[in-house]
Amino acid sequence: MTAFDVRILGSGIVSRSLALALARQGLRVALQARPATRSAGPDLRAYALNPASVRLLSELRAWDTLPPDARTAVHDMRVAGDAPGARLEFSAFTQSVPALAWIVDAAALEAVLDTAVGFNAMVSLFDEPPTAPLTVVAEGKASGWRDKLGVRFEQHSYGQRAIAARLVCDRPHNGVAHQWFRSPDILALLPFDRPQPGHSFGLVWSVSPAESERLLALPVAEFEAALNEACGEAAGRLTLGSERAAWPLLLGRASAISGAGWALVGDAAHVVHPLAGQGLNLGLADVAALAEVLAERESWRSPGDADLLRRYARRRVTGTWAMTQATDGLWQLFAGQQPLLRELRNRGLGLVNHIAPVKRWLVGQALDS
């Protein structure tokens, strides 16, 4: 019987990326197999990946094998408030980077990672992975193993649901992302090349549960009319290119992310509002940090050594806390409907838009997270 160094519980992008990263170190990995059946409905997930995540996926040789239309560079971002003139614009050109982010088709990325895992001799798939010195929990926000470890998961509902869909536009997206912060909703259009190259967007529209039900129940033509009214046709005339789906939004944080023989990564450790598109980036940053800690460990330490895993927890505490506070703070700022708060936040957007050093700092924080 093969002895394993690490077992990874979870069947998503974070678990596969971690398995490949650890296999590169010569560690023997027992990985949970992907379920034979997926939940009903289309997979409309699209992730915004920052350069740090792209570097990691490139090192794992997963990035360059993605189909060309499954990843789209974001060259510019235009953010608007809920008052005339309240806007903030970012550009990859002024930041001197190839792209501010890349929008990636989740299903395509999962397929590429599955293929890489299948060809890696150091990774073995199991429905129930056998024990190992280190157990990494990457099961997502509803993790059952996290509960078995006695780790509390403190969560707060935002009282919103995110509506997702793929859209087709009557004019090219030109790599421009659009976002509207309005009370009480937040709407984002992510430039994408599926279903129509150069003319598609991924929609993420955060609204109240009641509004979500209303919008999802609308006939296609009426939904498109509501969407175009909300966007003001800033990106062009939008039509649905897929079905619609929705899920509840919450803020979540585990009371601990490591202990003797175990560690948490990804949504099992933390969940943030999608308004900044940083959820998967945080999970892949967990992967990079844990892989680095294990690579640097002393030869006499087990991968499950509690002191070793505390190094991982320390490396992640600052970045995770900062992103959690930033996303939650933005939501709190734009969720309020008091007239004075509305005026302050809209004036703030316009002010920041004219202060180049502040804009560069904000973009830098997102690029390096």
Rank of each mutant, 00 (worst) to 15 (best):
L9E: 10
L9W: 11
G10Q: 09
G12W: 08
G12M: 15
I13H: 04
V14A: 12
R16A: 04
R16V: 01
R16Q: 12
R16W: 01
S17G: 09
A21V: 07
A21H: 12
L22T: 01
A23K: 01
A23H: 01
A23E: 04
R24V: 03
R24S: 05
Q25K: 00
Q25L: 06
G26A: 14
G26F: 03
L27V: 00
V29T: 05
V29D: 05
V29R: 06
V29I: 13
A30I: 03
L31P: 09
Q32T: 11
Q32S: 02
Q32P: 04
A33F: 05
R34A: 15
R34Q: 15
P35R: 03
P35L: 09
R38F: 00
S39W: 03
A40Q: 14
G41K: 13
P42H: 00
D43G: 09
D43C: 08
D43T: 10
L44S: 06
R45L: 12
A46D: 03
Y47Q: 12
A48Y: 05
L49V: 09
P51T: 04
V54M: 05
V54C: 07
R55H: 08
R55Q: 12
L56M: 12
L56D: 08
L57T: 01
A62I: 00
W63L: 02
D64I: 01
D64M: 02
T65I: 11
P67N: 11
P68H: 15
P68M: 08
A70S: 15
A70P: 14
R71K: 13
R71S: 14
A73L: 13
V74K: 06
V74Y: 04
V74Q: 07
D76T: 14
V79W: 11
V79A: 06
A80N: 10
A80I: 10
A80V: 13
D82I: 08
